[in-house]
């Protein structure tokens, strides 16, 4: 059984417009995917595509409007807060900017100790031993224990963020842009650390990033999101070497390659992401798609099988197969 199974996740927000009018913003429009134990699933897409909303629903910082989030055999999508608390131990989140997500008034030991106090009954000696163990796990020294976030480098702060998430021995770690605030050399170190922890602890990651080169490096499978829906999902190698959806292609083509000999002449995706308030009726990518035909404007595009474990939401690229 999959460790995490997300089915038909929907989330809307009310936004106020001028004149006191309320409008509905459709942030997630039926997101489904599964994550197997021990694998890393990447969620990619541009700002506003619903990556972070998905993450926040998964750890139930947000309550989805509809859909299911199965952790093992329990659906947490609509669980009330008290019932949720013990389950929170099993899934934890690491945030983008460690200087924002760490409390400036807590020392490293306090920050890591807090989840320990919430979820485990530990004596003071056991607690200290566990904090030391966690620090060593993420490559921090014992002397860092009594420091405050501002006394640490940003790379060290992100290690504290990871240690805090690991404190309650989660099965699943949601990483929301964990390396985006970091410089190249520090980024490399955090990625290496995450890979090492995955191997040694057998932990499962959902890795959210707009940085496709990092995703290619660390993820086993990738889901590409656009306007709150998954438009393509499949094994990382497949997605990067032979993408099926025109949006995935355009996204990959837009990433600059650090090689001046490969300076691009290929066409650039025009326009901007459409509004989440007035969702397109047919294919979500219609307005910007370089290969669209008239029918795309009115035909909604569900995911179709494009190969082993590979699905894409484009009826031009992925023809319907005969029912098996």
């Amino acid at each position: 059984m999959s460790l995490l199974r997300v089915e038909g996740l929907r989330k809307t927000f009310k936004v106020k417009e001028g004149g006191g009018r309320d409008r509905t913003l459709f942030a997630l429009n039926g997101v489904s995917f599964t994550v197997e134990a021990g694998e890393t699933l990447g969620l990619v897409g541009e700002s506003g595509c619903g990556k972070s909303t998905t993450a926040r629903c998964l750890v139930r910082l947000l309550r989805p409007d509809a859909g299911h989030i199965w952790i093992g055999d329990q659906d947490i999508a609509a669980l009330p807060e008290p019932a949720l608390r013990p389950l929170r131990r099993r899934l934890q989140m690491v945030f983008q900017d460690p200087s924002d997500s760490l409390n400036p008034r807590l020392t490293v030991a306090d920050a890591i100790g807090e989840p320990l106090a919430l979820h485990f009954q530990l004596g003071p000696g056991e607690r200290l031993a566990r904090i030391r163990e966690l620090l060593a796990l993420v490559g921090l020294k014992d002397e860092h224990r009594d420091r405050y976030p501002h006394q640490l480098s940003i790379g060290q702060q992100q290690r504290v963020g990871v240690a805090r998430a690991l404190a309650c021995e989660p099965e699943l770690l949601i990483l929301d842009e964990p390396t985006s605030a970091l410089d190249v050399s520090v980024r490399g170190m955090v990625i290496r650390l995450l890979e090492e922890l995955r191997a040694s602890l057998g932990i499962t990651y959902v890795f959210i990033s707009h940085d496709l080169s990092v995703v290619r490096h660390i993820c086993h499978r990738v889901a590409v999101m656009y306007l709150g829906a998954i438009v393509e999902i499949g094994p990382t190698d497949r997605i990067f070497s032979s993408p099926s959806h025109p949006y995935t292609e355009a996204l990959l083509a837009a990433v600059p390659v650090p090689d001046p000999r490969q300076r691009r002449t290929r066409p650039i995706l025009a326009g901007e992401v459409s509004s989440l308030v007035d969702l397109p009726k047919g294919c979500f990518f219609f307005a910007r798609c370089p290969v669209r035909i008239d029918a795309c404007a009115t035909t909604p595009q569900p995911l179709r099988e494009a190969g082993a474990g590979h699905e894409a939401a484009c009826f031009l690229r992925v023809p319907e197969r005969a029912a098996v």
Binding site: E46, H210, V255, P256
Partner: peptide, 10 residues
């Protein structure tokens, strides 16, 4: 975002 970045750089 990368698609916009490509437009602006060009």
């Amino acid at each position: 975002d990368v698609t916009l970045q490509a437009q602006i750089l060009r």
